[in-house]
């Protein structure tokens, strides 16, 4: 339909033609029946036609308007079904990318272990996303590609697509997942296949996410992006669902631990606990249970980068 999404994925033309087919039949019936309705109202209004004719029904008509819609809906069913079957046939050579959803971010892990918060896919190559939800239901939705799949904790799911058009497209979470549901989004960047391969050669660490040299002290910022931390925390002191990183190091904080209010100093151990055991203690004024542990995800090296970054933000 829309020029900018035309050929964005291999499903667009099929989904859109099914939609146009159904939409066309629907509009035909809507306008046709409405035309009859309006015509009858005008033609047979009381002032024009004071006496109604007695008609109880007509069996032939009943059969006609049962059979014709039945044929049409079966055709539409078939059209919808065949398009869907194609969407379920994952090619064997599809490039796997693990997609992790949590409240309220998506992260993408590639075959070599590199993780990004933006989905990079090569043009004209089949890609399959292995979908993992960590906390609640999410749904990965790329409108331009006409793909959507719910992500259910504890269940495996996957979708595939092949994009034929370079560009950036929005990725949304389509299944309501709590407070910041409408902010849970990402971008898919379709890049030439060669450039896609180059991406993995440079460096697989977080610093390379955006392929730019960064100040060592703010390298942690890339780590926060990589794991989607910024959905709930800010670097400028703004309060979101979780506390800001700004001015955190060395400050005394009031936290709730085992339902008791206590004061702790934010040191390295505190930051470590906050990332690996986030529900052990909760800063007063925030809610428990929203953050999951990043154990086995954030590496020691990345943790040190985060620490440097927080120190930098606290100067």
């Amino acid at each position: 339909m829309n020029e900018s999404t035309n050929n964005a994925s291999n499903f667009v033309s099929q989904v859109d033609s099914a939609f146009v087919f159904i939409f066309g039949i629907s509009i035909f019936f809507l306008l046709g029946i409405t035309a009859f309705l309006v015509y009858y109202i005008i033609r047979y209004r009381k002032s024009k036609n004071p006496v109604a004719e007695h008609i109880e029904g007509n069996n032939t008509l009943e059969i006609v308007w049962t059979v014709i819609p039945t044929i049409l809906v079966l055709a539409m069913f078939y059209y919808g079904w065949s398009g869907w079957r194609y969407q379920k046939e994952v090619p064997d050579d599809a490039i796997p990318i693990k997609t992790i959803a949590r409240m309220w971010s998506f992260t993408f892990q590639y075959e070599n272990g590199m993780i990004t918060d933006t989905l990079f896919v090569p043009k004209d190559k089949a890609v399959k996303l292995d979908l993992v939800a960590l906390d609640v239901l999410h749904s990965l939705y790329i409108p331009a590609f006409r793909v959507k799949q719910d992500m259910v904790p504890g269940k495996e799911a996957l979708i595939w697509f092949e994009s034929g058009r370079e560009g950036e497209y929005d990725v949304y979470c389509a299944e309501y997942c709590g407070l910041l549901h409408s902010y849970m989004k990402s971008i898919v960047k379709v890049i030439p296949a060669l450039q896609y391969e180059e991406m993995f050669k440079i460096d697989s660490s977080a610093i390379a996410v955006n392929n730019i040299e960064v100040d060592k002290r703010t390298a942690g910022a890339a780590v926060t992006r990589k794991y989607g931390c910024n959905a709930c925390h800010t670097a400028d002191g703004t309060k979101l669902v979780g506390p800001s990183y700004k001015n955190i190091m060395g400050r005394t904080r009031t936290v709730i631990r085992d339902k008791e209010e206590i004061e702790v100093v934010a040191d390295e151990d505190y930051i470590r606990r906050s990332i690996y055991e986030p529900n052990y203690e909760i800063v007063k004024g925030y809610e428990k249970g929203l953050m999951l542990s990043y154990k086995d995800q954030v590496t020691e090296e990345e943790f040190q980068l985060l620490l440097d970054y927080f120190k930098y933000l606290s100067e």
Binding site: F11, Q14, V15, A18, F19, I22, F23, I25, S26, F29, L30, V73, M76, F77, Y79, G80, W81, S82, G83, W84, Y86, Q87, S139, Y141, P143, R146, V147, K148, A174, E175
Partner: peptide, 18 residues
């Protein structure tokens, strides 16, 4: 009639939860 677009599988995938 809009329900028909939602009942067809391939269009539902795109339109579901929107």
């Amino acid at each position: 009639l809009s329900g028909i677009a939602l009942g067809a599988l391939t269009t539902n995938i795109h339109l579901h939860d929107t």
